[in-house]
Computed example of a mutant assay.
Amino acid sequence: MSAPIKPDTKKLILDTAEELLLTRSFSAFSYQHISTALGVKNAAVHYHYPSKTDLGVALIQRYRRRFARWTAQQETLAGDPWQKLEWYFDLVVRYYDQNQRICPTGVLSAEFLVLEQPMQTETRAFMEELLNWCERILVDGLEKGYFRFKGRARDRAAVIMAALQGGLQVARVLDSSAVLDDIIKQIRLGLGAGGQLG
Rank of each mutant, 00 (worst) to 15 (best):
T16R: 14
Y146G: 15
V114H: 08
S25M: 06
G39H: 08
C103E: 13
L85S: 05
R69D: 03
G167Q: 10
Q120H: 09
S177R: 14
E116S: 12
R101G: 07
V179G: 00
I187D: 07
C134D: 11
S27F: 05
Q169I: 09
C103I: 02
L55S: 09
Y47H: 07
N42R: 11
S51T: 06
L191T: 01
S35G: 15
E111A: 03
Q83L: 00
L38A: 06
K41R: 06
E111T: 14
K144V: 04
A162M: 11
P104C: 11
V139T: 07
L164S: 05
G190M: 08
L20G: 01
F67N: 10
G190E: 05
I137R: 10
P7M: 09
G39L: 06
D15V: 00
F29R: 15
Y63P: 00
V170A: 11
G39F: 05
L113E: 09
K52G: 02
E116A: 06
Y95F: 04
Q83M: 08
A68H: 02
C103G: 04
A158K: 15
H46A: 10
L20V: 13
H48T: 07
L108Y: 06
G145L: 00
Q165W: 08
S176A: 14
P4D: 14
G198P: 02
V93F: 04
Q73G: 02
K144S: 13
K52C: 11
R66I: 14
V173S: 08
A153G: 04
T121V: 10
I60L: 15
R94T: 05
Q73N: 13
S176E: 08
A163E: 05
V57K: 11
A193K: 04
A58T: 10
V159T: 03
V92R: 09
A58N: 12
A17L: 07
A58K: 01
A43T: 02
F26S: 09
A157H: 09
C103F: 03
K144I: 00
Y31Q: 11
E116C: 09
A171K: 01
L22R: 14
Q117F: 10
F26W: 13
R62C: 00
Y96F: 14
F89R: 15
T23C: 06
R136K: 14
R124A: 02
L115A: 11
L189H: 12
T9W: 04
L191Q: 02
R136D: 07
D54F: 01
F29V: 06
Y95S: 09
K144L: 08
W87F: 07
Q100W: 13
L189I: 06
V93Y: 10
L12P: 13
T16E: 14
T9Y: 15
W82S: 13
R136W: 00
L22H: 11
L197Y: 10
T53D: 08
A163W: 02
M119R: 06
L131I: 06
K52T: 05
E75S: 05
E111D: 02
F67S: 09
G145P: 13
R101E: 06
E18W: 15
Q169G: 12
E128M: 03
Q186I: 01
F149E: 11
L168M: 01
T76R: 15
L174Q: 12
R94P: 00
G198N: 15
G195P: 03
E122W: 05
F126G: 08
T53K: 09
V57C: 15
L77P: 12
E122V: 04
M119T: 08
P4A: 13
A37H: 09
G39T: 00
N132A: 13
